[in-house]
């Protein structure tokens, strides 16, 4: 049961991490094609999420849906476990 709790936490962190990943992308404007002088260093930006036809956004959404569903299943599982325990104790009395 403890493992399940850790698992739920991991799901949360995963979803959270992906969420954080998306935020700077939304704020960032379209990369301009203006040529800078050669001395200008390339600015590192979180461009990963908009590459490849924005497929990563779809992956994020799918993982969020899956994460939500799995979280629900885990919650129901824990509720049933709790009930099982309660009923066992109730019968023992």
């Amino acid at each position: 049961m403890k493992m399940l709790r850790i698992l739920a936490l991991c799901c949360f962190i995963l979803c959270g991490a992906l969420g954080i990943h998306t935020t700077p992308v939304q704020a960032q404007p379209e990369q301009t094609t203006v040529e800078f002088s050669a001395a200008q260093p390339e600015v590192e930006m979180a461009d990963q999420m908009r590459q490849d036809g924005k497929i990563y956004i779809v992956v994020t959404v799918l993982l969020t849906v899956l994460g939500g569903l799995l979280f629900y299943v885990i919650t129901v599982d824990r509720k049933v476990s709790k009930l099982e325990k309660e009923l066992k104790e109730g019968l023992g009395r």
Binding site: M3, L7, L62
Partner: peptide, 19 residues
């Protein structure tokens, strides 16, 4: 409950790698 953890890992892998 190891197989439940396996389920979660496999499904996350499926969606991410599947896309």
């Amino acid at each position: 409950n190891w197989w439940k953890i396996l389920t979660v890992l496999l499904l996350v892998f499926t969606v991410a790698a599947g896309m």
